[in-house]
């Protein structure tokens, strides 16, 4: 992919993000932060590439630490979001 196609995806995604986030109800702003935290750990993709590659042992170890850190976030972020969301209940009638 050339730089311009990537930039296009990025700019479009910013607009999507803008409209999607404004539609989030304020009551769920804390879960929003927790889940954005979890998904920004998609940076694990870069960490996996670094740790999977042969060639540089130092890069591999940096990658492995990054994999572990991102995993804390992924599992922790999604689990804590799920825990919070399960608490939001409607009035019993």
């Amino acid at each position: 992919m050339d730089f311009i196609s990537i930039l296009s995806i990025f700019v479009m995604a910013c607009f999507v993000g803008y409209y999607v986030v404004w539609s989030v109800t304020p009551a769920l702003h804390t879960p929003l932060m927790a889940v954005t935290n979890a998904i920004s750990s998609v940076i694990i993709v870069g960490a996996l590439i670094a740790s999977a590659a042969a060639g540089s042992p130092s890069a591999k170890w940096l990658g492995l630490i990054a994999v572990a850190l991102a995993s804390v976030n992924i599992f922790g972020g999604f689990a804590v979001t799920a825990r919070m969301l399960a608490m939001y209940k409607k009035k019993e009638r």
Partner: peptide, 12 residues
């Protein structure tokens, strides 16, 4: 995936 996520989280 990283670019879309980054843009979403950044805007959020």
């Amino acid at each position: 995936a990283m670019i879309i996520t980054g843009a979403l989280v950044g805007s959020s």
